[in-house]
Design a protein around this nucleic acid. Sequence first.
DNA 1: AAACATACCTCGCCTGTCAATGTATATTCA
DNA 2: TGAATATACATTGACAGGCGAGGTATGTTT
Lengths: 107, 107
Amino acid sequence: MSIASDLIRGHTETIILFHLLEGDSYGYQINKSIQFRTQGQYELKEATLYSAFRRLEQNGCITSYWGNEETGARRRYYSITSLGRAVYEQNVRDWQEAKTLIDALLT
Amino acid sequence: MSIASDLIRGHTETIILFHLLEGDSYGYQINKSIQFRTQGQYELKEATLYSAFRRLEQNGCITSYWGNEETGARRRYYSITSLGRAVYEQNVRDWQEAKTLIDALLT
DNA sequence: AAACATACCTCGCCTGTCAATGTATATTCA
DNA sequence: TGAATATACATTGACAGGCGAGGTATGTTT
């Protein structure tokens, strides 16, 4: 993992929400997807991932349900809500703005 | 202030180091400069600023000395060290990389 | 005299990340 | 067969940076 915790901090929830825009998914899958998309440069730590799920569900951005796997380990699937979609959109806007600001302050 | 704490987290020290590249300065001045450069969109909280100074001095990125003001409140000036310059350069590289990664994970 | 600007500093809380640890199932391979 | 590995979820407690609240002191403006 090459990105520092403090630089990713605050983006975990948005990353998860973005993934869920493409359809319901579960923790392990989401993390594998992140690893794949960043060519192994980044992965969420499990504790970080699951605490983010808890927050997102508590504030109504996602809902969850158990998958009915015939075989293999059980999976808890997550769905994004309409609130979650709105929060995602806002977070992306905030990120675009923050990027510009930080760039202006660092260089 | 429009930027969330979690998005700025980890950049405070780099922002300070960047400011000091242009010459010795002191806390109040650095903060005013940030406010000016961001047109009031951002300011460091004083507690954040001074705790960052403490960390930076402890790990050898900056040194400090009292200014000899004839009048007005006393000022503690800070100088960037060569280590500080190197850390700044590395942090900016990390930021460029993180930006790309986060962009890829959010959109 | 009161208000404001300049200038510094500290204490203690809050929150997100993460290391460590634990549980359970299925597959691979020696 | 048994050990290792992959899949999959979950909790606990520590850590660190940001910051609200509070404090000190000087100088200027109204």
